[in-house]
Simulated scan of single mutants.
Amino acid sequence: MTSLYAHAGGDEGLHRLEEVFYAKALADPVLKPLFPQAMPHHVRNLTWFTAESFGGPDRFTRDLGFKHIINVHRHLQITEEQRQRFVDLYMEAFDEAGLPTDVPFRDAVREHVQFGSHVAMQNSHAETDADLHPLREVPHWNWAGDDQQEPAP
């Protein structure tokens, strides 16, 4: 079965998605405290993370490492409102970026973003390493939305 990465259009499709999402996040009053200014490599890093999660190249792990994403979220104090707004804007960006609209793909992307936003929120409140979510590597997402299952036929 085709990977989520290939189904999304590879780097080109995911980069387009992350560009649209990042512009929304920078302009959104609820997310503005989390995204106070544009960072030059943020879209690239988001693209690399999503690509690797969806079965693409492992550039995020090789070039940045998972500790990077933990450090980025640490001490942000993400609220439930911000977490949900992140998911909502991401799915809006998904629609606007022209990615495939089939329900299985859309559901897998939503599950991925829901999961990741919960991990980020937990890590943003962690006072010690023991308080961090136990995830320590880029999750490998699939059609079922569970990195422990094989993709559905």
Rank of each mutant, 00 (worst) to 15 (best):
V109P: 00
V138M: 07
F115G: 10
D102M: 08
P104Q: 04
L132V: 06
D11W: 12
A152N: 13
W143Y: 10
M91Q: 09
M39E: 15
S124L: 02
F60Y: 09
T2P: 10
F21N: 01
P153V: 10
E52S: 06
G145Q: 01
H75N: 14
P139Y: 02
W143P: 02
D95N: 12
E137D: 14
L17F: 07
P151C: 08
W143S: 05
Q148Y: 15
N45E: 15
L99S: 04
H125N: 09
D147G: 13
P139N: 07
F54M: 12
L34W: 03
H41C: 14
R106D: 09
I69P: 04
H125W: 07
S117I: 02
A8D: 01
L99A: 03
N123Y: 03
L46R: 00
Q122E: 08
V30R: 10
H75G: 12
Q77V: 04
I78Y: 00
M91V: 09
G9N: 06
M121G: 03
D102K: 03
A8W: 00
K67M: 14
M121Q: 10
K32R: 15
H68C: 09
T50D: 12
N71P: 12
R59I: 13
D107W: 08
S117D: 01
T79I: 12
S124K: 00
A25K: 00
D102V: 05
G9Y: 04
D28T: 10
A130M: 04
L14N: 01
T2N: 15
P153G: 13
R44I: 13
L34C: 08
Y90R: 06
I69V: 13
H75P: 02
V138G: 03
A126K: 02
K67F: 11
E150G: 11
Q82H: 07
D107H: 11
A152S: 14
R110W: 09
R83L: 03
E81H: 14
R16L: 07
Q77I: 05
P40K: 10
K32P: 04
E81C: 07
I78L: 06
H68L: 06
R44W: 14
R110H: 09
D107C: 09
H73F: 01
F105G: 04
E111K: 15
H73V: 00
F49Y: 11
I78N: 00
P104V: 05
N123K: 00
L64G: 03
D129S: 12
Q122G: 05
R83G: 01
M39D: 14
R110K: 15
L34V: 05
A8L: 04
N142M: 06
I69Y: 04
L4D: 06
V119M: 02
F54D: 04
M39Q: 15
A38G: 10
D102L: 08
I69M: 12
Q114M: 13
D146N: 09
P134I: 08
A38N: 13
N142V: 07
H118F: 09
T128Y: 06
P36W: 02
Q122M: 08
T61G: 09
V20N: 05
L4P: 01
D102A: 07
L34Y: 02
L46D: 00
V87M: 06
D147E: 13
S124R: 01
Q122S: 04
R106Q: 11
Q77Y: 12
A27D: 13
A6P: 08
D102W: 08
I78F: 01
Q114S: 15
V43T: 05
W141V: 07
P104R: 02
W141Q: 12
L46I: 03
